[in-house]
């Protein structure tokens, strides 16, 4: 098996060499290779199929120009299609309102608390905001302490109520606190939950109803496999979230979940997180993500050269 799509397509180049036009016959194996590469990168099975069908439609009949081989043309079509799918219009981050409210939600261990800290630090230092972090995770052992430690590291206040076992009222009280302390943005960290946990999904939906957030961010681990679509769909149905945060991109995962999620829920990826330290919040670049999924760091130069 090949390690990445570059190698795969390079071998496919050989098959296609000398053919001036891409047609149904000479493209079949290449399409299969692309589909497998996407699945290897954790793109959802069905989405990989649909995606390659689209690519095939675009490719068949395209005329290969002098300087570019059919294989290279395929790579370009695939990459452009990926970028287009994951990009779309510039994602805004809405901080209007006094205070503006941001709700953070996602599966267990995805990186919500860490991201909450990063976002607070970013808003404080880059945007001149005055944030309040809210510990609305009443379940995980030491969840409040964790957020307090982060708040201390970045010099941002943390609102918590150790005896209160109602996430909704904690969130509501936090907003009152923000108003009285002149904080203009409230970031609510919630407990990790499974999409099929009815009681827990109802809880976060209730928090949403109670505080009417400007932004609801769905935090997802970029190492997630095929299940990413189910989870994203379920959270979106329940919360109608405004954006996605992709975490742990400092790893070596190909991150196909990003494509699956974007494809499924059509919501922008607003931030990425690539590190445990609180200064590593970053914006999302569709182009980079496309290259990562395809495992082809150097392919653009290849195509550009051609």
């Amino acid at each position: 098996m090949f390690n990445n799509l570059t190698e795969r397509l390079e071998s496919a180049f050989k098959n296609l060499k000398g053919e001036a036009r891409i047609n149904d016959l000479n493209i079949a194996n290449t399409v299969k290779d692309i589909r497998r590469a996407l699945i290897d990168a954790d793109v959802n099975y069905k989405i990989a199929k649909e995606f390659t069908d689209r690519v095939k439609d675009k490719a068949v009949g395209s005329k290969v120009i002098n300087a570019i081989s059919p294989g290279q043309l395929m790579v370009k079509i695939v990459k452009d299609e990926l970028v287009e799918l994951m990009g779309g219009e510039e994602a805004e981050f809405n901080t209007t309102g006094n205070p503006a409210v941001v709700l953070i939600a996602g599966l267990q261990g995805s990186g919500k608390t860490t991201f909450s800290g990063k976002l607070a630090s970013y808003l404080k230092n880059q945007k001149g905001k005055s944030p309040l972090l809210v510990a609305a995770d009443i379940y995980r052992p030491a969840a409040i302490d964790q957020l307090m430690v982060l708040g201390e590291q970045i010099g941002v206040d943390v609102y918590s109520e150790r005896e209160n076992k109602d996430a909704v009222s904690i969130a509501q009280n936090a907003i009152k606190e923000a108003k009285s302390k002149n904080k203009n943005i409230v970031i609510i960290d919630t407990a990790g939950r499974l999409a099929i946990d009815e009681a827990m999904m109802a809880e976060v939906a209730n928090v949403k109803e109670a505080v009417k957030p400007n932004e609801i961010l769905f935090v997802v681990d970029s190492m997630t496999g095929q299940d990413a679509v189910n989870t994203a769909k379920a959270f979106n149905e329940r919360l109608d979230f405004t954006g996605v945060v992709l975490t742990k991109l400092d790893g070596d995962t190909r991150g196909g979940a990003a494509l699956s999620i974007k494809y499924t829920v059509q919501k922008p990826i607003k931030f990425v997180s690539s590190g445990e330290k609180l200064d590593t919040l970053d914006v999302f670049y569709p182009e980079r993500m496309a290259q990562r999924i395809l495992g082809m760091g150097d392919i653009t130069t290849l195509v550009e050269k051609a």
């Binding site: 290897d40 990168a41 954790d42 599966l107 261990g109 681990d221 190492m223 997630t224 496999g225 095929q226 299940d227 990413a228 989870t231 790893g251 070596d252 995962t253 190909r254 196909g256 979940a257």
Partner: peptide, 11 residues
């Protein structure tokens, strides 16, 4: 291993 991890678990 997180059960929801994809192919990166191999690495």
């Amino acid at each position: 291993l997180d059960g929801s991890t994809g192919q990166n678990a191999l690495e």
